[in-house]
């Protein structure tokens, strides 16, 4: 149904970014990689959105450049993508800030370890003896020590 060649490449790009991004979010353990994957997936979704208005021989939707209205591409997806990009920037900035604080508090960027430490903290705050967590690192591998300077920056600052 889809013509081979260039259009196929556009879609492959958008979908490739989406797939790389979503796989990264779901499968990565490193926090920084997850945030990067989020940015990639957002780029893929944006590309898919802007492709929605594309057609062969289209021109930019700007009047007074000697182009006929019929050749101009749909301006709406372009405006939408502008909005979506800014939203993505806001979310990524917050994600990075939270990652900095999480690293300060626990000294690791491994999502699974962060989650274990968090659950232990929540249980401790609730006065429940920490249950032997099922997905704790096998063999009681110790979590890397937090540098003293970091430790003072975390917690209830």
């Amino acid at each position: 149904m889809m013509p081979a060649g260039l259009p196929f490449l556009f879609y492959a790009g958008a979908i490739g970014l989406l797939v790389i991004g979503i796989s990264g979010i779901v499968l990565s353990r490193n926090l920084f990689r997850i945030i990067l994957a989020l940015a990639l997936a957002e780029a893929g979704a944006n590309l898919l959105l802007v492709l929605a208005g594309w057609h062969w021989g289209g021109s930019a939707p700007i009047l007074g450049q000697g182009k006929a209205l019929e050749t101009m591409v749909d301006p709406v997806p372009q405006a939408l993508v502008l909005t979506a990009i800014v939203i993505g920037v806001g979310i990524q900035a917050l994600a990075l800030a939270l990652a900095v604080r999480a690293y300060r508090a626990y000294g690791t960027l491994d999502m699974r370890r962060l989650r274990n430490r968090m659950n232990r903290d929540i249980a401790a705050a609730a006065g429940i003896p920490a249950e032997s967590s099922r997905d704790a690192p096998a063999g009681g591998r110790p979590t890397p020590p937090v540098p003293a300077a970091h430790r003072s920056g975390g917690g209830r600052a």
């Binding site: 997850i34 997936a41 994600a95 939270l98 999480a102 626990y106 962060l114 968090m118 903290d121």
Partner: peptide, 20 residues
């Protein structure tokens, strides 16, 4: 607190996934 940051971060990542 550290736990609050990690919880929020996970919330953010899942929300970001939902955004996409």
């Amino acid at each position: 607190s550290g736990a609050a940051f990690v919880a929020t971060l996970r919330y953010l990542v899942i929300s970001g996934f939902g955004t996409v």
